[in-house]
Simulated scan of single mutants.
Amino acid sequence: MDTRQFNDDVFQVVELIPTGRVTSYGAIAKALGYGTARMVGHAMGMIDHENKTLPAHRVVNSSGHISPPENSGGKWRIQMLEQEGVAVHNGKVVKFKELFWDPKIEIE
């Protein structure tokens, strides 16, 4: 698997996440049909290195928690989500299931 192509595919999906909605690392991998949640997380970590400006704050873990947590540098993600009207409590998106954007459904 070509890492650069995988990263680009992840970035394309992340660009589609609507304002005020969230998705998960695993959902992105599932929508792409290859890769794992961990690989998507690694791609997300490459955003700055690739000079991409993407709504990375809209990608959370499968239970709706912000990753990394607020005390590990995730504070900006929480702030960005809250600016978009997404409530976050104790590092977790409130109403995660209601706000979840399923890229597999949306990009088919």
Results as ranks from 00 to 15, higher is better:
Arg21Gly: 10
Asn90Ser: 10
Ile28Val: 10
Gly85Ile: 04
Arg21Cys: 14
Gln83Val: 10
Ser24Glu: 00
Lys75Ile: 13
Gln12Asp: 15
Lys75Asn: 10
Val60Lys: 15
Ile47Asp: 00
Pro103Val: 01
Val86Ala: 01
Leu54Arg: 09
Gly74Cys: 06
Gln12Cys: 09
Thr23Ala: 13
Met39Cys: 00
Asn71Gly: 07
Ala43Phe: 03
Lys30Ala: 07
Val10Ser: 02
Gly73Arg: 08
Glu84Val: 03
Lys30Met: 03
Tyr25Glu: 04
Ala27His: 05
Ser62His: 11
Lys52Asn: 03
Thr3Ala: 04
His57Gln: 04
Glu106His: 14
Tyr34Cys: 04
Glu106Met: 14
Glu108Tyr: 05
Glu108Ser: 15
Trp101Asn: 05
Ser67Met: 13
Asp48His: 11
Gly33Leu: 02
Glu70His: 05
Ala31Gly: 01
Val10Pro: 04
Pro103Ala: 05
Gly85Tyr: 07
Thr3Gln: 12
Lys92Asp: 10
Pro103Asp: 00
Phe6Met: 05
Asp2Glu: 15
Leu54Ser: 12
Glu84Tyr: 08
Val59Arg: 04
Glu50Thr: 01
Asn71Glu: 06
His42Tyr: 11
Glu108Ile: 11
Val88Asn: 09
Ile107Lys: 06
Arg4Val: 13
Glu84Phe: 08
Ser62Cys: 09
Asp48Gly: 07
Gly26Cys: 02
Ala87Thr: 02
Ile28Ser: 00
Phe11Trp: 05
Lys75Pro: 02
Met1Tyr: 03
Ser72Lys: 15
Lys30His: 11
Leu16Asp: 04
Gln83Met: 09
Ala56Arg: 14
Met1Phe: 07
Gly45His: 08
Lys92Met: 11
His65Lys: 13
Thr3Leu: 06
Asn90Glu: 08
Ser72Asn: 11
Gly45Phe: 07
Val10Thr: 10
Glu108Val: 12
Asn90Arg: 14
Gly73Thr: 05
Met44Arg: 12
Gly45Asn: 10
Asn51Pro: 00
Ala56Pro: 00
Lys104Arg: 12
His65Gly: 14
Val40His: 00
Met80Phe: 08
Lys97Val: 13
Val10Tyr: 04
Asp2Val: 13
Glu98His: 11
Gln79Glu: 15
Pro103Gly: 05
Pro55Tyr: 01
Gly73Cys: 10
Trp101Asp: 10
His65Arg: 15
Ser72Ile: 06
Val13Leu: 14
Arg77Trp: 06
Pro55Cys: 05
Leu99His: 07
Pro69Tyr: 00
Pro69Glu: 01
Phe100Ala: 11
Gln79Phe: 05
Val13Met: 03
Tyr34Asp: 08
His89Gln: 15
Gly74Asn: 08
Thr3Glu: 09
Lys75Glu: 12
Pro55Thr: 03
Tyr34Ile: 00
Thr23Glu: 09
Glu98Ala: 11
Ile17His: 09
Asp102Glu: 10
Val14His: 09
Gly85Arg: 10
Asn90His: 11
Ile17Lys: 06
Arg77Glu: 12
Thr19Lys: 15
Met39Asn: 06
Val59Glu: 10
Gln5Arg: 15
His49Met: 07
Glu108Gly: 14
Ile47Arg: 03
Pro69Val: 01
